[in-house]
């Protein structure tokens, strides 16, 4: 009985998320009494594939795509066929852009119940019950997956990587992708910037930043900490910062280890986007701002006055 985990690659490389997925899949495999098998689609060097075995993958299957384009239908067909060939009982994907595209299609194709956006191991495997957040983190629910095959998508930054080295077994499988209907016309990529969804530390600003011209110290703090920058919805709506930085219910949902909310009052919709964050630090001039109910650490004060002090304190920490 196997647990198949789809490990996406970024220009032939894996990242922390890939290892979180394999660690998670191998724990699920232990629970169902099976083994974790990783699936990689596209061109990835063996040395990179071997890394997956470090986190518990007993076998690594590679499939060549018929195309460079990410065609949701074709990828679904490939993953479904591999799952069927293996007789996989559980298929694990990331709850990221690609996982959100593929998991629901796979659910229908394999007639497999989908537990979307889980952050913990299943509560039980017989019956198969998963725990996930609902109402954008305002509540949680236990959901039974009633089908024979199950699909789980794992929330990023929610599961600790565990080393569990296995002998490396790489197998190339021939699977036809079928018709490719997606034509990619153009790709725009930012390079050299930490992705908001990957970041372990995020420094985020709200209306308390007062003007689009005041973000220098916030960016400096982020740079010093190796953090990504983010913002609240009013800030992106005003055009002070790009939409891609908007964190909240309708923007990006993130789960870093540490989140600085600078001049953000903490509307329910904002909290919904950061509710799985491990530690929230809030800086706000209003002591009654709701952000302090979500935060573990707080400073009451004006963002523009507190930021330079935080920058100095981090510089001092780094000089030690």
């Amino acid at each position: 009985m196997s647990v198949l985990v789809y490990t996406e690659n970024w220009d032939g490389k894996f990242k922390k998320l890939s290892f979180e997925l394999v660690s998670y899949a191998s724990k699920v495999a232990e629970m169902v009494g099976g083994e974790a098998v990783a699936l990689s689609i596209g061109n990835v060097e063996n040395a990179e594939l071997e890394k997956l075995a470090q986190y518990g993958a007993k076998k690594i299957i590679t499939v060549d795509p018929a195309t460079q384009a990410f065609d949701e239908q074709a990828y679904t067909k490939v993953i479904a066929e591999v799952a069927q060939k293996l007789g996989a009982k559980v298929v694990v994907l990331a709850n990221n852009n690609k996982g959100k595209a593929l998991a629901p299609r796979l659910s229908v194709r394999l007639k497999a119940a989908l537990g979307a956006g889980v952050s913990k191991l299943p509560v039980s495997t017989s019956p198969f019950v998963v725990y996930k957040k609902v109402y954008s983190g305002k509540a949680f629910s236990d959901i039974e997956l009633k089908s024979d095959v199950k699909i789980l998508t794992l929330a990023q930054n929610s599961f600790d990587i565990t080393t569990n080295p296995q002998a490396v077994v790489i197998e190339k499988m021939d699977v036809a992708a079928g018709d490719i209907k997606t034509e990619v016309k153009n790709v725009e990529k930012q390079t050299g910037k930490i992705l908001l969804t990957d970041a372990e530390i995020v420094v985020s600003g709200g209306r308390g930043m007062k003007s689009p011209d005041n973000w220098g110290p916030l960016e400096e703090l982020a740079n010093l900490l190796g953090a990504a920058t983010a913002c609240s919805r009013p800030v992106s709506d005003e055009g002070w910062r790009p939409h891609g930085e908007h964190t909240g219910q309708t923007g990006k949902i993130i789960a870093p280890n540490l989140y600085f909310a600078i001049g953000i009052s903490g509307a329910t919709q904002h909290i919904a986007g950061i509710s799985s964050t491990k530690y929230i630090v809030a800086v706000n001039s209003d002591k009654d701002a709701p952000i302090f109910e979500a935060a573990q650490y707080g400073i009451i004060g004006d963002a523009m006055k507190v930021l330079p002090k935080l920058v100095d304190a981090v510089k001092e920490m780094k000089s030690k």
């Binding site: 119940a113 983190g137 509540a139 949680f140 236990d142 039974e144 707080g298 400073i299 009451i300």
Partner: peptide
């Protein structure tokens, strides 16, 4: 294919620790 077994509220977070500005 799925069935909600129960809902629960998040555990309350510990009170915020304030540090002087």
């Amino acid at each position: 294919l799925t069935e909600v077994k129960k809902y629960e509220m998040p555990k309350p977070r510990a009170a915020c620790k304030f540090v002087d500005a």
